[in-house]
C-alpha cells in the first residue's frame, strides 16, 4: 500500500508554551516546586501528543517539552558530569558543565519519559537523543585526551540507555547532531561516535543533521556536501535533513552518492511563521521523488517546532500531512 511509504514524523520538539517557559524559569528561581513543574510537563506533553495525532502525524514524539534545551537534559543525566546549578537563571541557557574524571556507567532515566509517551498514544513513537559530537561541544572536558575519546565514552554510556529504551518498546530512535554543520572537519570521528552509540541497538535509527535551531535561527550556513562521503559509514537507517528553508539543491547528493540509508525529507521551514500550503509541501516531496523512490523517503519538518507559536506549529503539521496525502494519492493513482 502506497500509504505505508512517505511516513510523516516530527523531528522531535513541539511548540514550547509561554506559560511553560515561565514555569521553568520560576522553578530555576525556586518559586515553584519540582512536583508542580513535573505536573505541568506531563500536561504539556499530553497536549503536544494530541496535537500531533489530530494533525495526522504517523510517528509522534513527546514534544521534548521536559527538556530545557538539547544539551542540559542529557548533561544533567550523564553520570560523571558536574553541573554548576548557579550558572543559569533562564531555562534555555546552558548550564556550565564539566567532566573531571572517568565517567562511570549508569542509567540516564530516559525510559521513564518514553513510557509516559507510550501510555498516552497509540501512534508509532520516536525518541530523540542528542548525539555525542554535539554533547562534547558543550560539556567541558578536563579528563579525556581528545574530543573524540570523550565522545566515544559518552557513546558507550548512552548506548546502554538506548538498549534500555528498546527493551521498553522503543522502535524509532533519532540521534541529533546539529553541531556537525559547524565543525565539518570532525565528521569522521563524529560518525564513529554515532556508530558506537547505536551498536546492537535494535530499533529503526535515524540521524538528524541540520544547520542549528538555537533561538529559532540557523547557527551556520553552507552545503550538506560536507557530509559526504563520511556519512555513508554511519550504521543508521535514515538521515533527516532540512530542505524547506535551504532549498532542494543538496538533494542531488543522493543522486551522486549511493546512500545505504533512507532520507527524512524536511518539508516545513521551522524558522518562519508563514505556514506552508499543502501544495507547497507536495511540490517539495515531488522534487525529492525525482531522485529517490517512495520507499526511501519519509516526510518531516526541517527541525524541531520548539520556537514556533502553537497555532503555527499545529497548522504547519496539518499542512505537512495534507501535502503528503496529496502525493500519496497521486502515487496510488
Amino acid at each position: 500500500m502506497a500509504g505505508q511509504h512517505l511516513t510523516t514524523a516530527v523531528v522531535g520538539s513541539y511548540s514550547m508554551p509561554g506559560w511553560l517557559e515561565r514555569a521553568k524559569n520560576d522553578y530555576l528561581r525556586r518559586r515553584i516546586t519540582a512536583h508542580d513543574l513535573d505536573e505541568m510537563h506531563d500536561t504539556a506533553v499530553k497536549a503536544a501528543i494530541k496535537d500531533q495525532e489530530v494533525a495526522g502525524i504517523d510517528i509522534v514524539s513527546d514534544g521534548e517539552l521536559r527538556r530545557d534545551n538539547m544539551i542540559d537534559y542529557f548533561a544533567m543525566r550523564l553520570p560523571g558530569v558536574e553541573i554548576d546549578r548557579t550558572s543559569k537563571t533562564s531555562y534555555y541557557d546552558f548550564y556550565e558543565s564539566v567532566v573531571r574524571g572517568r565517567m562511570p556507567m549508569a542509567p540516564l532515566g530516559l525510559v521513564e519519559h518514553y513510557r509516559f509517551l507510550r501510555r498516552f498514544t497509540d501512534h508509532r513513537t520516536k525518541v530523540s537523543v542528542t548525539g555525542p559530537h554535539s554533547l562534547v561541544k558543550r560539556i567541558r572536558n578536563e579528563h579525556y585526551p581528545s574530543e573524540e575519546a570523550f565522545a566515544m565514552e559518552i557513546a558507550r554510556i548512552m548506548n546502554l540507555e538506548l538498549r534500555e529504551l528498546v527493551r521498553a518498546g522503543a522502535e524509532q530512535i533519532q540521534i541529533d547532531e546539529p553541531y556537525y554543520s559547524g565543525f565539518p572537519e570532525d565528521l569522521p570521528w563524529g560518525v564513529r561516535a554515532v556508530n558506537a552509540l547505536v551498536e546492537n541497538v535494535d530499533a529503526r535509527l535515524s540521524l538528524h543533521v541540520c544547520y542549528g535551531n538555537r533561538y529559532g535561527k540557523p547557527s551556520w550556513e553552507g552545503s550538506y556536501r560536507y557530509l559526504f562521503p563520511a556519512i555513508l559509514e554511519a550504521r543508521i537507517d535514515q538521515v533527516t535533513l532540512e530542505f524547506a528553508r535551504r532549498g532542494s539543491e543538496d538533494l542531488r547528493l543522493f543522486k551522486e552518492f549511493d546512500a545505504p540509508f533512507t532520507l527524512g525529507l524536511g518539508v516545513i521551514d521551522v524558522k518562519t511563521h508563514d505556514v506552508e500550503t499543502p501544495a507547497v509541501v507536495a511540490e517539495r516531496i515531488r522534487e525529492a521523488l525525482a531522485i529517490l523512490p517512495t520507499e526511501r523517503l519519509s516526510v518531516n519538518p526541517d527541525c524541531g517546532l520548539l520556537h514556533l507559536p502553537r497555532e503555527i506549529a499545529f497548522a504547519k503539521l496539518c499542512a505537512m500531512v495534507e501535502g503528503t496525502q496529496l502525493v500519496r494519492r497521486e502515487i496510488s493513482g
Partner: peptide
C-alpha cells in the same frame, strides 16, 4: 532586523 543576519 536580526533575522536578516547571517549566522555569523
Amino acid at each position: 532586523t536580526v533575522p536578516l543576519l547571517h549566522p555569523r
